[in-house]
Amino acid sequence: MGILEVKNVNKRFGGLQALGDVNLSVAENTCHAIIGPNGAGKSTLLNCFVGKLIPDTGSVMFDGQSVLGRTPHEINQMGISRVFQTPEIFGDLSVLENMMIPIFAKRDGAFRMHAIENMHNEKEIVEAAEQMLEEMNMADKRHMHSASMSRGDKRRLEIGMCLSQQPRLLLLDEPTAGMARADTNNTIDLLKQIKDERDITIAIIEHDMHVVFSLADRITVLAQGTPLVEDDPENIKGNPKVREAYLGEAA
């Protein structure tokens, strides 16, 4: 029984069957990659995990509880964090403030009226944020305006913000999209380190095969909304069905 269980999920947009009978099981403390050509339904599937979309039929269970019908913030509070294709950070705020907000959310829940409380009394939060920045190698940037950082640093910050909440499942939506080679390699190293050092399950959507084969323990190939194969990385590489789906070659 995996930490994330997807059963018979269907999603239709008008005449387009975006997802058809998707079954997927992500085992705890592994890195599970979902790959597939453009329009295969990868992002649609991910959006079903976080409450942005609700499937027409089927179920999505996280740790034995259904996530369907819950709002994104409720799902996050269950222990799922998401990294977006374009880094979503609080651009108007400083890097340190960016890091403090998820820690507040973890401690205080979805809403707390701390309007007159003093930030000086929140030492534990500030310390936790500083420590996380240290781990992300961003301590020197703590007072920077986060919107003015490079794409790679924004990604690093976003991943750090997700990790600071100690999620059980981390969802990555094309974490290296639009990045320079050096930034991509840095991100891969960071993710590898996270995978090795933490008890965390990672589900990743990715186009870049270099990234996928560096990280994944298990790979699901999605084509036209249905899972084609699910296997270990070595077996995926040589699978003729996968080559066909990607390259249109006759097997």
């Binding site: 976080v50 977006f84 705020l93 939060i125």
Partner: peptide, 28 residues
């Protein structure tokens, strides 16, 4: 001033900055 400098004030600025990240961070 107290509201501006409080955690609550920071959350309000976060709303102005990025509501998507706000809700995916577990805040309503």
């Amino acid at each position: 001033i107290r509201i501006f400098r409080s955690p609550f004030g920071m959350m309000l600025r976060a709303i102005k900055s990025n509501q998507t990240r706000m809700s995916y961070t577990g805040l309503n």
